[in-house]
Amino acid sequence: MKKIVEVLPDKAALIERSRDVVLTKIQEAIQRSGRCTLALAGGGTPKPLYEALASQNLPWDKLHIFWGDERYVPADHPDSNQAMARQAWLDHVDIPATNIHPIPTDGESPEADASKHDTQLGEFFGVAADEFPQFDLILLGIGDDAHTASLFPHTQALQVCDRRITLGNKEGQPRITFTVPLINQAHCVMFLVAGAGKQPALAQIFAAEADPLTYPARFIQPQGELWWLLDQQAGQAVKG
């Protein structure tokens, strides 16, 4: 694993740098395999990144968009990660509808939709049921509790190693999420983190020793590149 940690002066610089890295990774992926598979993060931090990407001239037919996790709400719900990305980015560019692969949230149950999306991923990537496909780029954030995607501290989802998709749970609310081994299969994983409120979590994530069941982002150790892009406030936790 190649690990890159960069602390940027402010949120604007963080977004500018993340845009440049994402554009580079898209180009590298298309050169490597003729397409780029990109999994998006939810939350407020990446939204301006998506808005910045909306103004780029990209080969949209070669870009395939997925999500690392999703709240179990309708696709047009204000809390939907899919809805945020569509409003900020995807609705403004000529990406084919068939190149957008949202996590289903309209089936019989969260369990059924998680299983459905697991199957969808296998079919798209052409891998067997027990194999983990390799995303070109997975974008992630962290919560104040050091969770990432919908992998929350001391939840069952952290220990799921035989599926690509599983159920996360936050305060009784179901989420559908990538599993740790699926994330770790990626060519590149990039964390975007902003704000002083993330310092305590980052201190534990970057500590020499800490329990990953308590600080789940520690589980993310991809076989490819691991990028941490932090603004100055968040980055105070990892300096030195």
Rank of each mutant, 00 (worst) to 15 (best):
Gln156Ile: 05
Gln156Ala: 07
Ala157Glu: 04
Ala157Asn: 06
Leu158Pro: 09
Leu158Trp: 13
Gln159Lys: 08
Gln159Thr: 13
Val160Cys: 09
Val160Met: 08
Cys161Lys: 15
Cys161Tyr: 15
Cys161Ile: 12
Asp162Pro: 04
Asp162Met: 02
Arg164Asn: 15
Ile165Lys: 06
Ile165Ser: 04
Leu167Ala: 05
Leu167Trp: 04
Leu167Cys: 09
Leu167Pro: 03
Leu167Val: 08
Leu167Lys: 07
Gly168Glu: 15
Gly168Cys: 14
Gly168Leu: 09
Asn169Val: 10
Lys170Leu: 10
Glu171Gly: 08
Glu171Val: 10
Gly172Ala: 13
Gly172Gln: 13
Gly172Tyr: 07
Gly172Lys: 12
Gly172Pro: 10
Gln173Pro: 03
Gln173Ser: 07
Pro174Glu: 11
Pro174Asn: 13
Arg175Asp: 03
Ile176Met: 11
Ile176Ala: 09
Ile176Gly: 05
Thr177Ser: 12
Thr177Tyr: 00
Phe178Met: 15
Val180Trp: 12
Val180Phe: 09
Val180Gly: 10
Pro181His: 12
Leu182Val: 08
Leu182Pro: 04
Ile183Asp: 01
Ile183Pro: 01
Ile183Gly: 03
Ile183Phe: 02
Gln185Asn: 12
Ala186Met: 04
His187Arg: 05
Val189Phe: 11
Val189Lys: 10
Met190Asp: 09
Leu192Asp: 08
Leu192Val: 06
Val193Leu: 14
Val193Gly: 11
Val193Gln: 13
Val193Thr: 12
Ala194Val: 00
Ala194Thr: 03
Ala196Gly: 15
Gly197Asn: 12
Gly197Ile: 10
Lys198Phe: 12
Lys198Ser: 09
Ala201Trp: 03
Leu202Lys: 04
Leu202Phe: 07
Ala203Gly: 04
Gln204Arg: 07
Ile205Glu: 01
Phe206Asp: 02
Phe206Trp: 02
Phe206Met: 04
Glu209Gly: 01
Glu209Asn: 09
Asp211Ile: 01
Asp211Thr: 11
Pro212Asn: 10
Leu213Lys: 14
Thr214Lys: 13
Thr214Gln: 10
Thr214Phe: 03
Pro216Cys: 02
Ala217Tyr: 00
Ala217His: 00
Arg218His: 06
Phe219Gly: 01
Ile220Phe: 01
Ile220Arg: 01
